[in-house]
Amino acid sequence: MKAQIKLFESIAVMVVFAFLLIFGVNFYFGIQKTSVNRELARASQLHMFGLAQKISFLPELDCAIAGIQEEACIDASKLSAFASVLDDSNPQSSAISALYFPVFGWSTVTVTQIYARNAVPPTAVRQVTLYNNTLPKYKESSKMQVPILIFNATGSQSTEGTYAFGYIEVTQYAK
């Protein structure tokens, strides 16, 4: 009888020990997984920032006068042409969008002009959706805005050669 009690005591100690061990291990792995997920989130943020940065350097949009490229600047006429080429009403848009999937991936890219000195009123907001490819049944989306200058290479006498202020907004989708 005494031996049986001793055995049950040992089993109870082992069970408690196992519980504590499993709880500790789960807790530890939980923290580790959170830190890996944090790294992945950071990777996603960095990737999005890289994409926003890359957009202003794309030859399709950049401000280049006689081959000299300006930083953080996009050409308004190139922007309008690029948006038309990728527009859904263009019969070739799906084929052309396929060309741009490696560039933008699952994302929505908009360019918003928020201030132009010669616009009436100067703070009139103009928004152009450049690329829209939403991931079906996405679970997460994150946004980033990068300020840019919008150069008017063409236009009326009052606006030609002027710069407006705006931002590129990138929304990235993930499962």
Binding site: E60, S77, K78, S80, F82, V85, I96, L99, T154
Partner: peptide, 17 residues
């Protein structure tokens, strides 16, 4: 592929100009 994409945007821009 990039050349085709950029070319198409420039074609559209030149037509608009």
């Amino acid at each position: 592929k990039r050349l085709e994409g950029v070319g198409r945007v420039y074609q559209q821009r030149a037509v608009e100009l």
